[in-house]
Amino acid sequence: MLIKRFLTIIAIILSSYASYSLANNSPENYLDYAIKKVEQATKSSQVWDGPKDGPKLVNNKKIIFVASDLRNGGVYGVAKGISEAISNLDWQLKFIDSRGSEIRQAAGLREAISFQPDAIILGGIDALRHKTILEQAKKQGIVVVGWHAAELAGGNDELGLYTNITTDPLEVAEVAALLAVVNSKGKAKAIVFTDPNYKIASIKARVMVDTLKKCSTCKVLELKPLALDQIAEKMPNTLNTLWNSYGENITYFLTINDLYIDYAIPSFESRLEESRGIPRNISAGDGSKAAYKRISQQQFQLATVPEPLYLQGWQIIDELNRAFSNHPPSGYSTPIHLVIPDNVDDLITSESSGIYDPKNGYRDVYLKIWGGE
């Protein structure tokens, strides 16, 4: 079954490039294709495109959120969105923080099951790594919903997930790479960073590489593996090695998230002091407060692709209510939004929060659904 799941992911990747056939006839056509995709991704939708109906609220439910690490901005943002949604309900919510430890994640899941809740939410926890424990939850009739718990959005019976909430990682990766094509006018020369320890990171990086290769006048200089837990230690030497190899030929760094750019800043500053150029940096994920600041100041980062964390928290509660009502998942996946200097100020709700929160009325819509209106 795991092999089948992996083959499904590969098939999706391959099928996502079917639309490239016409766009790839010439550099001009491909650039036009890239421009249209990027323009669409940078638009800030003011209209709710998610579910507008569903089951009325089921009362008196006990929910436990098991977090991979509440110090992680994404996990914390989703947790805050869940708390906000539940404050309008009569449900009980408990948090268990694994503090970044896989051992604590396993212990936290076992603890959560022992409380016999109605549902468990996996906050950034890899469901595959804890499949055996999740089977126990399934046997006890506990609904499990994940946030970034599997590679793709949607249900996963094999892992015991009613549904998994995430933006489409393949779309995120494609749009990030297409921005480099557009920004360079089809002349990008890029290094792509990834973490080889995570399948989804490798898949995203491969999509970025393949997207750039579709641009016949662009060039992928190197796909660079660098584990997330080694970035702080190894990034300076890694950058020195890359500059020794490619020098000023590097015009773009594409990364799977903002952390790579965070730890590259000291090296960038040193090069600027020496009057040497630095690449333009694009992150295919996250949308951290630091990234927004860099993009707004047009310093060290060109773009990032954030997730609407509060919205996803509300969606998780709606999906749980559908499960409690024996309804199928909504099937909704939030659209891709590319944050660049032109739209960064519109997409940040406030300087203090640094959270991308679409102004599309999703809170009111969900409250109406749960109220049976």
Rank of each mutant, 00 (worst) to 15 (best):
residue 60 N to K: 11
residue 155 G to M: 05
residue 355 I to W: 02
residue 56 K to I: 14
residue 27 P to S: 07
residue 181 V to N: 12
residue 206 R to H: 13
residue 278 I to Q: 07
residue 134 L to M: 13
residue 10 I to Q: 06
residue 299 Q to L: 06
residue 208 M to I: 10
residue 257 N to S: 08
residue 143 V to D: 01
residue 110 R to A: 06
residue 15 S to L: 08
residue 191 I to V: 11
residue 103 I to W: 02
residue 40 Q to P: 03
residue 263 Y to R: 07
residue 60 N to G: 05
residue 207 V to P: 06
residue 214 K to G: 09
residue 164 N to A: 10
residue 139 K to W: 08
residue 338 L to E: 01
residue 100 G to D: 03
residue 345 D to T: 06
residue 194 T to D: 03
residue 67 A to S: 15
residue 116 Q to S: 14
residue 303 A to Y: 04
residue 114 S to R: 03
residue 355 I to N: 01
residue 21 S to P: 01
residue 62 K to I: 08
residue 127 A to M: 14
residue 351 E to S: 12
residue 56 K to W: 11
residue 358 P to K: 05
residue 141 G to T: 15
residue 77 G to M: 09
residue 265 I to Q: 10
residue 231 I to L: 07
residue 218 C to Y: 06
residue 138 K to I: 11
residue 61 K to H: 03
residue 297 Q to F: 04
residue 162 Y to G: 05
residue 220 V to M: 07
residue 152 L to I: 10
residue 283 S to M: 01
residue 278 I to M: 06
residue 271 R to N: 11
residue 205 A to R: 09
residue 34 A to S: 10
residue 70 L to Y: 04
residue 29 N to F: 12
residue 208 M to D: 07
residue 26 S to M: 13
residue 335 P to Y: 04
residue 41 A to E: 04
residue 31 L to A: 12
residue 1 M to T: 10
residue 157 D to A: 12
residue 172 V to W: 00
residue 146 G to T: 11
residue 147 W to H: 13
residue 221 L to E: 10
residue 370 W to N: 00
residue 148 H to G: 01
residue 330 S to W: 14
residue 140 Q to R: 15
residue 42 T to G: 01
residue 193 F to V: 04
residue 177 A to Y: 15
residue 151 E to W: 09
residue 146 G to C: 06
residue 200 I to N: 07
residue 224 K to T: 11
residue 369 I to A: 02
residue 6 F to G: 02
residue 21 S to H: 05
residue 83 S to L: 06
residue 168 D to E: 09
residue 338 L to V: 02
residue 237 N to D: 12
residue 199 K to Q: 12
residue 346 D to T: 03
residue 174 E to R: 15
residue 213 K to Q: 14
residue 36 K to G: 03
residue 268 F to Y: 15
residue 89 L to W: 04
residue 234 K to W: 02
residue 172 V to G: 09
residue 333 S to Q: 10
residue 367 L to Y: 00
residue 298 Q to M: 08
residue 191 I to K: 01
residue 29 N to G: 07
residue 241 T to H: 09
residue 313 G to Y: 11
residue 346 D to L: 08
residue 7 L to Q: 06
residue 204 K to G: 14
residue 208 M to E: 09
residue 294 R to K: 05
residue 132 T to K: 13
residue 256 I to S: 02
residue 318 D to H: 11
residue 364 D to E: 13
residue 315 Q to C: 13
residue 278 I to A: 04
residue 319 E to W: 06
residue 227 A to W: 01
residue 10 I to V: 08
residue 150 A to P: 14
residue 248 E to V: 03
residue 212 L to I: 15
residue 18 A to P: 00
residue 315 Q to M: 15
residue 103 I to H: 02
residue 198 Y to D: 09
residue 121 I to N: 00
residue 81 G to P: 03
residue 72 N to R: 08
residue 244 N to M: 09
residue 188 A to H: 12
residue 64 I to R: 00
residue 281 N to D: 04
residue 126 D to M: 08
residue 255 T to R: 03
residue 32 D to C: 12
residue 176 A to E: 06
residue 215 C to G: 09
residue 347 L to S: 12
residue 294 R to W: 11
residue 37 K to D: 07
